[in-house]
Amino acid sequence: MRRAFSAVLMRDLRLATRAGGGGGMAVFFFLIVVTIVPLGIGPDLNLLAMIAPGMLWVGLLLSALLTLDRLFQADFEDGSMDILMMGDLPLEALVAAKAVGHWLTTGLPLVIAAPLLGLLLNLDESAYPPLMLAMLLGSPALSFLGTIGAALTVGVRRGGLLASLLVMPFYIPVLIFGVGAASAATSAMPSGVYGQSLSLLGAVSLVSLVVGPVAAAVALRANLR
């Protein structure tokens, strides 16, 4: 089972790097979103520093949403999904492998790129480690919860937009705790907010690690019958 899991994971990673831009595209999208913000609200550095953690998190959310429809749709269209489902890997584990692949190609590159984009938004240097730690803890939840939306909309016309609509409310706790951790480092927050938000963020991620694959597997079985 472990071999099958890593085979699916490696296949997804190979597909992402050799065809389709992989993490590069997501990072580019993230960069564009962050560049558009100062153009929209003005170049005031103090204001930018204040909203930087929130804007970086919103950018991360949007990039994760944008790549959701590629999770199952391409495999569904060329028929490889049927073959993957016939294999001896349980569907839940298959979804988990796909979610890990999604995280490695979109979540992780964005977390690594975040400090660079923080520079553009005049984010305080002391906020980089907490921001990156929070993103590292929270971004797996984005991928794992995202599988639910992607699985529900497999085979639906214009499913990508619908998947974003379905999943966005589930992302709200991740956004709130993630921004809480990052802004606790920059502004005068009551002590304990930082640790509190990090542990809550970790809890949300752990819950999504279980709920995402199980719910997505039920949805996939219903859609691919």
């Binding site: 639910i148 529900l152 379905l166 409310p169 589930f170 709200i172 706790p173 709130i176 705790f177 809480g180 927050m189 907010v193 809550l200 949300v204 819950v207 709920v211 719910a215 039920v218 949805a219 079985r221 219903a222 859609n223 019958r225």
Partner: peptide, 30 residues
Amino acid sequence: RAARGAAVLALVGALNVPIIHYSVVWWNTL
């Protein structure tokens, strides 16, 4: 098909409603 998919969504939503609510309360008091 729609019934099963929608049921999954409703149940995940029901699980998430308390989490969302308490996160919003936490955010608001912050």
